[in-house]
Write a protein that binds this DNA or RNA. Structure first.
Lengths: 342, 342
DNA sequence: TTGAAAGCGCTAACAG
DNA sequence: CTGTTAGCGCTTTCAA
């Protein structure tokens, strides 16, 4: 009877036996080839190739006490258009630093009581936390053990100094509102707000409010309603608004996805953009330039955010110094949906 | 001197000591709680909670010889709009079967000589292969070891019987072309083809060709050019076409992303859609319905594809019987960009 | 119902 | 330059 069932993948010992050396030597040609005599090395490498040997990650992790994995914890992966660029950036950063990416979105799956998820200290070297899928308590617990963490699109709970990357949301929204007021002379600007509790949403609305205040335009609460960063929600809200006889000169959607929903509602109601109702968004999702008319919006560098977050995390894992906060600039992108002719 | 630096996460032995039992017993309350006396169990559970103990995945993997991880191997994560729905479906399937998702896209990172990637038998229980990021030889090697594999959007190399999920591409393209010919009476239909070597692209073009043939319309090679399933490529191609005086009554883009590129080129050239040039796509990406005019396209159930693939893989891993091929139906979605009034 | 002991596959001193 | 040895943290017989 053979020692191993034929189908079991080769181990380092199989390689060692095959090449007549010890397991330690095989390990060396894997991790420190120069410590091994060229001829031995060649022998071992041949055996590795013949046996199709790949070191079991679990065994290496166990021995090394690291996993070479970066975990991404995020809310449900939806159809949001800012998601692919962000993920692309994260992937890029991980690859650059030699980490694999472990993704876990919290939809459906129940977190364990402590608000803990399936990604954590037990299977990754560090976590990227997107928005707020885990509890502050869990964040705090991890941070206190100095487990490497980087937050995306949110700042840390009070008292913690977790590195994070966020957009210049307020400045972006302010610039956009200024544009609507100063260039187009609008006074009544409807605002499709993002979801409650979302930081991006909070700061964008603040930028809008500040601009109004700066121009001595009284805030009309009737002009602020929920867009929810979601097409469907924004579409429903806009339709209701229209039915109720919305009295506004323009709509500022807090993100492009909600702008799409509003556009759809406007189209259905037979309103032309921008003649009957100018509309602008925030994010500059890839498709926004394709709409007719192309959407005026604020560019938020999602890919860069992902990339930067991954880099920061990788550096933290390696013990290097890491900036504690990255504020990525936003930029006005004037196209035709606001009424500009470009 | 303490045995462990205070910061090291608790191990099963710490829990055992704390609750005055053996490690084996702790392991039992983790995996087979009923084998442990209720009181002991309670004791252990308390210790687990106090110590914030979570079993190290690597150690479990090593001991169990499985990882509870499903790997997704894909080409570069881009801005393609079909990607989020597909990933959403995959996530859903993984969650349902209790697997974590490991993602690896092959852009940038060099595969090792054998065409092997960082995801494989050594760190996952099975692989979802999207398109063709790894070599046929590697696919064959894995399949021969009966390592669980499921292919997405491609069929297996000749001779292998790897389960796969694909769209009814040919039928979809055929239906669309039929529509253009029969309902709109078009004879000269330009086709923006997908990338060479891509199976979706191949079958879609075949559907187009078959429809022409069925209607006795001679194929004009000048009417087929590369759209590459990519906005930029399609935009450039369409612009060139227009410059060269494209003589067509409509454009059929092999996917929605390339339709977007064509639309952009058309817009720039001052052509109205559909009056001056009707255009249709394939996929029904989420934004297609938002364009003005909304894009007529073929709906390909991307989320379902991802979900189904994940399920099939999970079932294969568990040793259950698995269908060898899932052919997902496609469906005509008539909107206004083809000239229909809906 | 519980504990002791061996083993999963790899790495890292320490000798030689 | 290479082999021996002792873990890494968990699971799983086998006995008691």
């Amino acid at each position: 009877m053979m020692k191993r069932s034929a189908n079991h993948p080769a181990t380092i010992h199989d390689v060692a036996r095959r090449s007549g050396v010890s397991a330690a030597t095989v390990s060396r040609v894997l991790n420190n080839p120069d410590l091994v005599a060229p001829q031995t090395r060649a022998l071992v490498q041949a055996a590795i190739a013949e046996l199709n040997f790949v070191p079991r990650a679990a065994a290496q992790n166990l021995s090394n006490r690291r996993t070479n994995v970066i975990g991404l914890l995020m809310v449900e992966i939806g159809w949001d258009n800012f998601f692919p660029p962000m993920l692309h950036g994260i992937e890029k950063g991980c690859v650059e630093y030699g980490y694999d990416l472990f993704i876990h979105s919290t939809h459906l799956r129940s977190l364990v009581p402590g608000g803990r998820s399936s990604l954590g200290e037990h299977n990754t070297d560090g976590l990227l936390v997107f928005l707020n899928p885990i509890s502050d308590a869990e964040l705090e617990r991890l941070d206190h053990k100095s487990f490497p963490l980087v937050l995306l699109h949110r700042s840390p709970p009070a008292g913690l100094e977790i590195p994070h990357v966020v957009f210049e949301n307020k400045a972006g929204a302010r610039k956009m509102t200024d544009h609507l007021i100063e260039v187009h002379g609008f006074q009544r600007i409807a605002f499709l707000a993002g979801p409650a509790g979302n930081e991006d949403a909070y700061w964008r609305e603040l930028g809008y409010r500040e601009s109004l205040a700066a121009h001595d335009i009284p805030l009309d609460p009737a002009l602020i309603r929920l867009g929810g960063f979601a097409e469907e929600i924004a579409e429903a809200t806009t339709a209701e608004w229209l039915n109720a006889g919305l009295d506004a000169q323009a709509i500022f959607a807090a993100d492009d996805d909600s702008a799409y929903g509003a556009i759809h509602a406007l189209n259905k109601a037979g309103k032309r953009i921008p003649e009957d109702m100018p509309i602008v968004g925030f994010d500059d999702s890839p498709v926004s330039r394709l709409l007719s008319p192309p959407l005026t919006t604020v560019r938020a560098p999602s890919e860069q955010a992902g990339y930067k977050a991954a880099r920061m995390l990788a550096q933290r894992i390696r013990g290097g110094p890491v900036e504690t906060k990255a504020l990525l600039p936003t930029e006005l992108v004037i196209r035709r949906s606001c009424g500009c002719v470009v």
